[in-house]
Design a binder for these strands. Structure first.
Lengths: 354, 354
DNA sequence: TTTAGCACTCTTGTTTCTTGAGTGCTAAAG
DNA sequence: CTTTAGCACTCAAGAAACAAGAGTGCTAAA
């Protein structure tokens, strides 16, 4: 059943007041905030209804109400206005992102820091899932007789390298052959395809080429591992402690540990990332550690249809509108830095009315 | 004045009991723990003396005593036994470090994680200070007409790379020239020397080589920045919350923020790293945020006399002996992984009796 | 349907009291 | 001169009791 216009206004007032003050809000306060010309008693009745329908909760019998996850969800989906970034804000973000156009990892890391600072919540950032990344080219550089550097470039413009020490000497021409082998056989593959292909090639290799193949395989595996183990970047974990809901250790601990141990492979699943929706509220989270927290995310464009993810974690009481706007802006900036002039990905939640 | 043998035993008992239980320890408890055949009254007198001399403190008039920083210092310097790592422990460490022989950064990062897990304290790890790192060789790889990858190898066996996009096309031969230029003029330099040299060369460049020089300079600068901005790796920040002294937010916050924002350039100074001493207790710390905390560090060998640093941060009440031993072991493992079979750096504090 | 009034509930903060651990001091014993 | 036993004293921590205040739900009137 659709809520009456007044009840929506009440819900909205409750959410916004609670987000700001972190304290349960009573009927009298709502009466003033919501801009309704009714008395607190009327509000009380409506609030009782809202509670019955699960949009509000009472921490205990005679405190004010606070929004339930369901209430937040309604607010985010229908009530939340589009937050307009002020010029100062956009400038601050631009400033922070400027001149950071360096190695991919560095950019991501920096973006995480920026977001953490901007939102006062812990931030995380990660690049595209490794299954999607494809290999563009290999290069092998002889360093000394028994060592060479292997350089792999992927379509993320990210470059991985590794120093190999060998038991026996290799010549420049051998290295050249190996390089050609790799470049003809293994470019254009995604990382997921690389593994099987490598083992297959290894099986059918002619005996005389065996040493080279072996090297190629071991190198390919290393790259695979290197890229797929890319960690989640986190920043501003200490920010958590600045918020009243994490004053008690029991609350803060699980979330902190979660962030501390976040790894890129499992995080997206734990956050249940879906297209379109990028606000996950409290119990909507898959991960147990996040049941009392909310996550706001924005994806950014890495080119070739690949998406990275950047977001913040905080209490369910978050200023979703503001945070979401800021994240979207940073994500947009990231997309641009990544070389593809991306369209602003501004459907940062379902819709926005005011 | 030298303390009597009995007082040393008392001090030691106090430290060890307090380290274990995190609670002030009274004369009666000491009487039992210290293995002395005297009554609690005698202990009381001695403890009063120890307090007067600044080795012990009383949180309030009638609680037991806790060690003062000066007391910890004495303990660490003279009283602390050498902690013997159990076979399980060494195996666990070996296990954790094994197969991690990858890119330098990854190893360091991993080592930090291992230490954090091992000690239950937040850990940090950093590589050699960039002033000491020298450049070994450059390689430039043409990717497409307007883009190339530059690869720099330093004497840490660490390889940095960066993708350059250009306004105009470069030919392979031009790149070859640039590469030669860099390799003849700029290898063997430390990073600190690189900057001035680059600008100098840029000034005297012949007009026709200008474009190349310009490129070289900008590239060199990038490398410089990249390497010198190398962040401190931290891990296990959430571990802090597991210890009673950080149950209160005021205690935990500053330390967390410190770790969150640690950067490689300033950290060693803040920790007042000196040769030989690698336990810093409470107020001995330079940084304000660490005045109530202790730091235990171990340095590891990166070859060519360069040292990296790995350590943990925790309350002054730490099991210095155990932590120090574990750190030393990890550091030794790191040194080996770094390619130089390093001698175990086991002078992890001045000396050890018992 | 809205409003005013009112009794009721429950948290929060304050105060008071009690308990117990640990001390310092004194005087006797070795 | 050193060690020990005894004892009064202090102070934090916890429990209990209390007051204040905010917010509610209900009832009856507008």
């Amino acid at each position: 059943m659709e809520l009456s216009e007044r009840k929506k206004k009440i819900l909205r007032a409750v959410v916004e007041s609670y987000v700001q003050n972190a304290e349960p809000v009573g009927s009298k306060a709502v009466a003033e905030l919501a801009g309704l010309d009714v008395s607190s008693a009327t509000i009380r009745n409506d609030m009782a209804d809202l509670e019955e329908q699960g949009y509000l909760e009472q921490p205990h019998t005679s405190a004010g109400r606070i929004p339930s996850p369901k209430g937040y969800r309604l607010y985010v989906n229908e009530l939340m206005g589009d937050y307009k970034l002020s010029i100062q804000e956009t400038e601050r973000i631009n400033e922070a992102l400027k001149g950071k156009m360096q190695a991919l990892d560095r950019v991501i890391d920096e973006a995480g820091r920026v977001v953490a600072k901007l939102t006062q919540y812990p931030a995380f950032a990660l690049t595209a899932p490794p299954e999607r990344v494809t290999i563009r080219r290999f290069d092998l550089l002889l360093v000394e007789a028994t060592a060479f550097i292997a350089v792999v470039m992927t379509d993320l413009s990210s470059v991985q390298n590794k120093l190999f020490h060998l038991d026996r000497e290799v010549s420049a021409s051998q290295l050249q052959m190996l390089s050609t082998l790799l470049n003809t056989g293994f470019t254009g593959l995604t990382l997921a395809e690389l593994g099987p292909k490598l083992t297959e090639v290894a099986r059918h290799a002619a005996p005389d080429a065996y040493q080279l193949i072996e090297l190629a395989v071991s190198f390919g595996m290393e790259v695979l591992e290197e890229l797929s183990k890319r960690p989640v970047h986190t920043a501003g974990i200490a920010n958590l402690l600045g918020h009243p809901e994490f004053q008690t250790l029991e609350k803060a601990q699980p979330l902190m540990s979660f962030l501390d141990q976040a790894d890129a492979a499992s995080l997206p699943a734990k956050l249940s990332v879906e297209e379109g929706s990028n606000i996950v509220i409290g119990p909507e989270n898959v991960s147990e550690a996040l049941k009392d927290s909310s996550v706001v995310m924005a994806s950014y464009d890495l080119g070739d249809g690949m998406k990275g993810l950047i977001g913040v974690v905080g209490p369910t009481r978050m200023d979703y509108a503001k945070i979401s706007a800021r994240l979207a802006y940073v994500a947009q900036g990231l997309s641009q830095i990544m070389g593809q002039a991306a369209l602003p990905d501004d459907k940062h939640t379902k819709e926005g009315t005011t």
